[in-house]
Design a protein around this nucleic acid. Structure first.
Length: 784
RNA sequence: UGGCCCCUCGUCUAAUGGCAAGACCCCGGCCUUUGGAGCCGGUGAUCCAGGUUCGAAUCCUGGGGGGCCAACCA
């Protein structure tokens, strides 16, 4: 990961480390549920978790989140371990299992009941749903919500001992049935499930839910940074609740005293064009036989990608390329393909294979003669040494698509009367075309070769544009070639209804009559090749027992000619459409201002607030919008008036409160701020009388919010008074200009946006003390 | 009583309030015994409207658009 542009997670971890949070240690975890195979979306999570641990000298655990006995299986756990190792990562210590913590989790639950924070609910599933309310309707308390602690304790114990049927009781956290965040409406912690767990067998018949098991597992393992995907955002509040309401030693000690204290951070999951990433949907494709197992080369699973011929370093590189952020995304499959080609181009030896053979007889080449043509494994620009011999004889096979009876414009392969180069061999000219008398299909070409061009060179210097691949009819080996393409024909198959309706019928085309040069005969399964002019391929495990050769296409070569043939370049038309749509997009009608409505209601309920609003507009002359914000909340209004008491500048003070203070109040209460109106007033006064620059004021404000104090004192102590004297600034301005001659030239050439660049330089140089207006004038003068 | 998150070239990701950058894709050109690779160049973006500021992709307000949450799944 490059120094200069780190993603927001790495920035956060870096800042935690340097601030000494958790003693500066970093511990992450990758927590899959063993209920399916890992896919490339998991690879993104793996690269993130292991990558962060590596880069900050921390550790990363592998933990199986196996709290649902009905879906999980040992074979998935082993396959996941294999996949993580294959990707090139090694986890900290042994694999961990949430199921190893069942006893401890149970103990924490018992304590939670004792603390009055959980209860056994004996409602039915339907009742619980009913009582939970909806996103717009608050929930109602369950009739069992106030069950005595002893009763819940006894019931919970009996749940564990197996006395109850599935679904008869659950353990719930007692939080808030009316919480706007649905996750906080008394979430379920345990359910009864009489099922055999693949690890704990029949030892348990109650199983913890994700929201209970996950934060506690993190806390138990000493995880510092619990990284997950965006859909768990709402769960974070509950995550923190669990951590804050449990104790490391269960019964004694301080609530939430976990050390380190794990923090959850969410980032966007990966979506890839032309495939699906949901485990459920992938499982469906497998179970319905739409694909040939989890490792079908069309699957986005790591097992599938591996069999397709994608190397682990490619997947890591791909994860690097796509980055980590919070915006929903859908990554172009081309980015993956680029990474694959980039890798294979450098490591895959070139060989020749003819997919759909067309017979070519060289009429002037002696019958029975065979020559060995020397063919390098890599083109010179790759720089890898090595070569093999390719047998050449009178009867050859070339690609059917490399011949055209009536060649289109710019076609420079074989056609009647045309000459092409056979790669590493001779130049040949097509003299005659033999057709099937019945069907008229071309079955054979009659050609002559130029003996002077052995190896493909032209001693006379003539230019031959076309070079095609070939094999000897006699010496080549029969093989099967599987041409894989994207699984779906739609970029986003999940978008509309039944994703299976968009399965690409041509996602696998099998060529059974292909022929390959003999040099590959003994190569093991998993050998990568570039079949010249066709793409990258890998030898598949199928057929080895019978000695058959089977190859999977990993990815095609970039092929502008083929692209041109496929007239409708989808991406291009899509681009045009998007642009047109953008241009035609009408201004949407404005909706209701819900914030304003809330504040209007507050004023309707509080005549004094309403009076303030009126006064701000009529007496103070504030714009209605500002007055609305200032007089929408009593605390804000009082702070405003407190500021006015020390500095009577309604507009200036209002601007500072509206634009700066309101930001601080977004996730904080007014009471928690160490400053009041007086400080704001004094700060604004310092700006308005020119004592400090606006920029310095923001620094001072940030400090005020952090630690309080008197702005005047801070300014004096720090010596950050504004510098407005041109004489004092001139040297600094000149220094900035002389230090950046290139920018100066560009500015003089008309790039006036660079004015800000120079002002920024001077501001930085002076620690924000320079008067920017003066600086701006000086820069203009100097560069005029 | 709904809450929360997100919005930068076609795509993905950068950018202390101070030069909108990189990669993929696409388009030219050079080179070429792969219509590959490589090299050189190019097109192309801050969702919108107000506000704050000397200066806004970034801060404030509002609007628009997208996403997540109402499993005894994770």
């Amino acid at each position: 990961m490059s120094e200069e542009s780190r993603d927001f997670i790495r920035k956060m971890v870096a800042s935690d480390v340097s601030a000494g949070v958790n003693g500066g240690s970093v511990a992450t975890r990758f927590p899959p549920e063993p209920n399916g195979f890992l896919h490339i979306g998991h690879a993104k999570a793996i690269c993130l978790n292991f990558g962060v641990a590596e880069e900050f000298g921390g550790t990363c655990n592998l933990r199986f989140d196996d709290t649902n006995p009905t879906t999980e299986d040992e074979r998935y756990a082993r396959a996941i371990e294999d996949d993580v190792r294959w990707l090139g990562f090694d986890w900290n210590g042994p694999s961990r299992y949430a199921s190893d913590y069942f006893e401890r989790l149970y103990g924490h639950a018992v304590q939670l009941i004792k603390d009055g924070l959980a209860y056994v609910d004996s409602s039915s599933e339907a009742e619980i749903r009913e009582y939970r309310g909806t996103v717009t309707k608050p929930g109602r308390p369950s009739p069992h919500r106030d069950r005595p602690v002893e009763e819940s304790l006894a019931l919970f114990e009996r749940m564990r001992s197996g006395e109850f049927e599935d679904g008869t009781h659950v353990l719930r956290a007692r939080i808030d049935m009316a919480a706007p965040n649905m996750k906080m409406r008394d979430p379920l912690l345990y359910r009864i499930r009489h099922a055999t767990h693949y690890r704990t067998g029949d030892e348990w018949c109650i199983y913890p839910m994700y929201d209970w098991a996950h934060p506690l597992s993190d806390a138990i393992e000493g995880i510092t940074h619990s990284l997950c995907t965006l859909e768990f955002l709402d769960n974070r509040t509950l995550y923190d609740w669990v951590v804050d309401n449990t104790r490391p030693d269960i019964e004694s000690g301080e609530l939430g005293a976990w050390q380190p204290r794990p923090r959850q951070t969410e980032s966007a999951r990966l979506n890839l064009d032309y495939t699906v990433m949901s485990k459920r949907k992938l499982a469906e494709l497998v179970s319905e036989g739409r694909v040939d197992g989890w490792d079908d080369p069309r699957m986005p699973t790591l097992a599938g990608l591996r069999r397709r011929g994608v190397r682990p370093e490619v997947i890591r590189r791909f994860c690097d390329l796509i980055g980590v952020a919070k915006a929903d995304n859908r990554v172009d499959i081309g980015t993956l393909e680029h990474a694959i080609r980039d890798d294979l181009n450098r490591m895959a030896p070139r060989v020749m294979c003819v997919l759909r053979p067309l017979r070519v007889e060289i009429e002037n080449y002696p019958e029975g003669k065979t020559e060995e043509m020397e063919a390098p494994y890599f083109p010179s620009d790759v720089g890898v040494e090595g070569s093999r011999k390719v047998p050449f004889s009178r009867v050859l096979l070339i690609e059917r698509t490399d011949f055209e009876q009536d060649p289109p414009k710019d076609f420079y392969r074989l056609a009647p009367g045309r000459e092409v180069r056979l790669r590493y061999a001779y130049l040949i000219t097509c003299n005659d075309v033999v057709r099937d008398p019945e069907t008229g299909e071309v079955v054979e070409l009659r050609c002559t070769y130029d003996p002077e061009t052995r190896g493909g060179s032209t001693p006379d210097g003539r230019k031959v544009r076309g070079t095609i691949h070939w094999v000897s009819c006699e010496e080549s080996l029969p093989c099967e070639v599987r041409l894989y393409d994207r699984l779906f024909s739609e970029p986003n198959p999940e978008e509309a209804g039944d994703f299976k309706a968009y399965l690409n019928p041509a996602s696998l085309v099998t060529e059974r009559g292909s022929r390959i040069e003999p040099s590959v005969a003994e190569d093991p399964v998993g050998t990568h090749y570039q079949f010249e002019r066709l793409g990258f391929f890998i030898r598949d495990s199928d057929g080895v027992e019978e000695g058959r050769l089977v190859y999977n296409r990993t990815v095609e070569l970039k092929d502008p000619w083929a692209r041109r043939q496929v007239q409708d370049d989808l991406r291009l038309t899509e681009q045009v459409i998007v642009k047109v749509e953008k241009a035609n997009k009408e201004e949407a009608p404005a909706g209701e201002d819900t914030g304003r409505r809330a504040r209007d209601e507050a004023r309707a309920a509080d005549p004094e607030l309403a009076a303030r609003f009126e006064r701000y507009v009529s007496e103070l002359g504030l714009p209605e919008e500002d007055a609305d914000l200032l007089a929408g909340d009593v605390a804000v209004a009082e702070l405003f008036e407190g500021a006015l008491a020390v500095h009577d500048s309604p507009r200036g003070v209002a601007n500072w409160i509206v634009n700066e203070l309101l930001r601080e109040l977004k996730d904080k209460e007014m009471e928690s701020l160490p400053i009041g109106g007086k400080e704001i007033g004094r700060l604004v006064a310092l700006v308005e009388d020119g004592t400090i620059s606006g920029r310095t004021a923001k620094d001072v404000f940030a400090r005020l919010v952090r630690e309080g104090g008197d702005p005047r004192e801070i300014v004096r102590a720090e010596g950050v008074e504004q510098i407005s004297d041109p004489a004092e600034l001139r040297a600094i301005v000149e220094g900035a200009i002389d230090g950046h001659p290139e920018q100066a030239a560009r500015y003089r050439a008309g790039q006036s946006g660079l004015l800000g660049f120079f002002v920024g330089q001077v501001m930085g140089e002076t620690g924000g003390r320079a008067n920017p207006e003066v600086v701006q004038r000086l820069v203009r003068e100097k560069l005029a």
